[in-house]
């Protein structure tokens, strides 16, 4: 599936809650549990994406032309968002990651999570994942 297909599927799933923020958050927290466990030895200072309240870790590897991510967060709602991002960008080529627009965040009513850079590691995570993709693209070229 393309990054656009995956995002459309996410938006479909969230549309069941009809904008009810509480149900959205409960669902997000449950989604976070689906994120593959990230080994503690990869949760180091090098791979942390800092935010005021929620921390995110992203550990990238580059296998057969595709970027693979391990990721985690110390808060459950952010972890749910991290899972969604992971499901869109994991095992994709650097070009697919760099060329994709993340339109699902606004559509599922979570744009406030990226609005405030200071308060959230999630916004910085998006930037960081694109930077890793760019680094691999440059290296591979």
């Amino acid at each position: 599936m393309t990054t656009t297909d995956i995002q459309n599927e996410i938006i479909d799933n969230f549309s069941l809650f009809e904008g009810d923020m509480e149900s959205t958050l409960f669902y997000l927290m449950d989604l976070g549990k689906k994120l593959p466990a990230m080994p503690d030895e990869h949760k180091t200072e090098t791979y942390i994406v800092k935010g005021c309240q929620s921390k995110v870790w992203v550990f990238p590897t580059f296998i057969d032309g595709k970027v693979h991510f391990e990721a985690d967060s110390n808060t459950e709602i952010t972890k749910g968002l991290v899972y969604l991002l992971w499901s869109i960008w994991n095992a994709k080529t650097p070009e697919e990651i760099l060329n994709s627009e993340l339109f699902f965040i606004d559509k599922i009513g979570m744009s406030s999570m990226i609005g405030s850079q200071r308060s959230n590691g999630f916004a910085n995570m998006i930037k960081q994942m694109k930077l890793y993709a760019l680094a691999y693209k440059t290296k591979g070229a």
């Binding site: 509480e22 808060t75 459950e76």
Partner: peptide, 21 residues
């Protein structure tokens, strides 16, 4: 078992403004 940030977000979903951190 709950991070204060998650609690704050869930209360906000109910229209309740509290401080977290």
């Amino acid at each position: 078992n709950m991070h204060h940030f998650d609690v704050g977000m869930m209360l906000d979903a109910k229209g309740i403004a509290v401080r977290t951190g």
